[in-house]
């Protein structure tokens, strides 16, 4: 192999690597946006996107390091780096906003459905380790508070927080029949039947439909919550 060939190959490889990196970044961001919107619109708690969030977080760390490194020597450098820093910072803000909102939405659901989630091992699996830890300690703190404030004064048979007797359940559950807006991504083979109506989901179309009817398609991402 000639020297030039080697160089050329090297260049091609690095270029295709760069190209892929951009693709990955764009698709990751798209995925993050989808995950965020889905989480906000979905009545129940969805799977935590562990690997996606990890990738985004590591990229955020790189950017923060870059900002810190460069703002120290800002006085001496020219204007170009200032603009560059400003662009990086505003992008950081944009990504952080979505990420925060995503995590907070999840936490608010964890708070709301704590007992319901704790009763079902499959649901606990959807949480990240940090979220599980948060849920447990929040739940503990809440029970301690209730106990010390008023539960200990009540008769013993009324002290439970997860009483389902008497026709009314104390456990708050997500309302899976709530209508949601969905956009169909892939062809779904199955037909949805609601009552006496049959509904075919056409790719590219937007539907308003109860969540329980499309739940399994949301899981395998044939439809997107919007």
């Amino acid at each position: 192999m000639e020297f030039d060939d080697i160089l050329e190959e090297f260049e091609r490889e690095t270029r295709s690597h760069k190209y892929n990196e951009v693709e990955v970044k764009r698709s990751d961001f798209q995925e993050l946006q989808n995950a965020w919107i889905s989480e906000r619109m979905c009545p129940e708690l969805l799977d935590y996107k562990q690997s996606l969030i990890d990738r985004i977080l590591s990229r955020i760390r790189v950017q923060i390091e870059f900002i810190e490194m460069n703002s120290i020597e800002l006085q001496t450098t020219e204007r170009d780096i200032k603009l560059q820093l400003m662009i990086i910072e505003s992008e950081l803000d944009r990504v952080n906003f979505i990420l925060r909102s995503y995590l907070r939405t999840r936490l608010s659901k964890v708070d709301k459905f704590t007992i319901f989630i704790r009763n079902d091992e499959d649901l606990v699996q959807r949480l990240s380790p940090a979220e599980t830890q948060y849920m447990e300690s929040h739940f503990r703190a809440l029970i301690d508070l209730y106990n010390s404030l008023f539960l200990s004064q009540l008769p013993e048979q009324l002290q439970a927080l997860d009483d389902t007797g008497g026709g009314i359940s104390m456990i708050e559950e997500p309302d899976l029949d709530r209508p949601v807006f969905v956009k169909v991504i892939n062809d779904t083979i199955e037909t949805i039947v609601i009552g006496e109506e049959e509904i075919d989901l056409i790719p590219g179309s937007i539907y308003l439909i109860r969540y329980s009817a499309v739940q399994r398609f949301v899981y395998n991402q044939d439809v997107l919550l919007i």
């Binding site: 807006f181 609601i194 590219g204 179309s205 937007i206 439909i209 109860r210 009817a213």
Partner: peptide, 19 residues
């Protein structure tokens, strides 16, 4: 109705307006 409604090509903002 109680089952579904189809709204193709509606933009996100318009959906959020009626949501």
């Amino acid at each position: 109705n109680e089952s579904h409604l189809q709204l193709d090509n509606l933009s996100l903002l318009e959906i959020n307006e009626i949501r």
